[in-house]
Amino acid sequence: MTTQNQAAGQAPVAGAAIARKRPPKTRMDKLLGRPESGVIIAAIMVWVFFATFAPHFFSARVTANVLLAGASLGIIAVGVATLMIAGQFDLSVGSVYGLSAALVVLMVNHGVPGWAALPIIMVFGVVLGTINGLLVTRLEIHSLIITLGALMFYRGVLLAITEGFPIRLKIPDPFMSMLDFEAFGIPGPFFWFIGFAAIFAYVLTRTRFGNWLFATGGSPEAARSMGVPANRVQITAFAVASMLACVAGYVSVARFSSVDALRGTGMELEVVLAVVVGGASLNGGYGSIIGAALGVLIIGMIQQGLILMGISVYWYQAGIGLLLIVAAIVNQYVRKRSIS
């Protein structure tokens, strides 16, 4: 039999590979072996840069601004990072964020107490995300298409119900005012962001569900063959992304008491940017919540830093774009290092 000879002929090569001794890992390998390695370095560099060149970068007010700017984006980024690791995208988060904020304002204005509006809007988010997830997994339509449709649809609904005008809370809600605190000079919304980042960093690295998320994003077919309910995992990730977008909407109402119909426009791409800067792979199966959170902070620092340096806001976009490209190059290097 030729097949037998083939197998015998191949054997020694494979055998050598099994016995192959690997050089011990250096400290550098360990340091660079994590998805967030690139973004940690980038965060330090951006911070040092503005600390050196931007006046008052250390002032409490500026720090608070950086953290505040990051809060909504950060809460949403946690969900989008989770979803991207599971192998899917959600372009509708910006619209869902705006719509949920408007719904919270309308609910409270119609007498729903603020503490009740929070779970209601979270369930609303879970429902929207589950619809996205079902459409994507059941019909096998790419998530970019489904959520692009959702982006337009929910933005349209928001414009229609507000008729394009800003809406605001008629009377302050005691529960929501309570959430709008400031501790140690850190604005309240930032604590929500840190809270969710910590919860999901834990879920992704320390739980069975986290293992399933990475496996599903890495290879849905293989994950399924090992008994992972890959569709359910992805639907759950969609639900998480939309739910966190709604929480961000709620938190923004607690902070600003008002919404305009364009709230969250363009945010979907800013979030993707933060998540990718944070080391996640667009192909799924690779990434980190900590990285995404740092990506968000870098964006906030660039925003505030450029303002402090008196540089035209037009340069902000250019700076962010440059950041994305540099980060992508660094992350590519880190990823290659960890898998080959």
Binding site: T207, R208, N211, W212, F214, A215, G218, S219, E221, A222, A223, S225, M226, G227, V228, G285, Y286, I339
Partner: peptide
Amino acid sequence: VYQDLGIIPLLSIWRNFFLGREDEVS
């Protein structure tokens, strides 16, 4: 044990080892 699938390249060895069987060691 599959010929063509059954292992996730981007996961570590130990995470692969317990994939789908995590409850027994959790």
